[in-house]
Amino acid sequence: MIALLRRDMALTFRMGGGFGLSLAFFLIVVMFVPFGIGAESSTLSIIAPGVLWIGALLACLLSLDRIFQLDFEDGSLDLLATSPLPLEGVVAMKALAHWLTTGLPLTLAAPFFGFLLHLPQGAYLWTFLSLLAGTPALSFLGAFGAAITVGLKRGGLLLSLLVLPLYIPTLIFGAQTVTMIAKGQNNTTAFLILAAISLFTLAIVPFSAAMALRINLR
């Protein structure tokens, strides 16, 4: 299974447009906000946590359809399904590879992008921590959506429509975690719920997505 993780990561780096694309998209979304709202630091610093979270979430969406679609098209998914690897393990490794190449870079970049939005002092660490805890849920929920839409021609748009509503809880508690700290409140509850959402999706998605894949491969 480690071989699958290594292969998927090597492919993302070599394919071009996979790794840098979501980071660049994230930067552009974040930069657009001052253009649209105005550069007043007091306004920006209030909305900064939410903007960073929405930007990361949309950037994450860009590469979701690659998780299974390419393997489906070139026949690898058939071969993986008949290989000794459990399909649940295949899903988990592919979602993990997506997180390592998308969620993790976004998490590392977010504090720097927060600077562009006048993110309040003291919220930088929690922006990083909340994304670190929340982005695995984005990758795994996305893998579930990708498994359902695999095989559909131009399933990318449908995938976005399916997955975005599932992202709502992660967004609410992720952004809350940062906003409450910025306001000087205790954010423990929001952060723990965010972590719980991530752990829940990590536990359940490999099984539900593998089931969806089996049906789509028939």
Partner: peptide
């Protein structure tokens, strides 16, 4: 099983 598609990755 070996089907019509070879399951090769072009970049590898």
């Amino acid at each position: 099983y070996s089907g019509h598609a070879d399951g090769l990755k072009a970049q590898l």
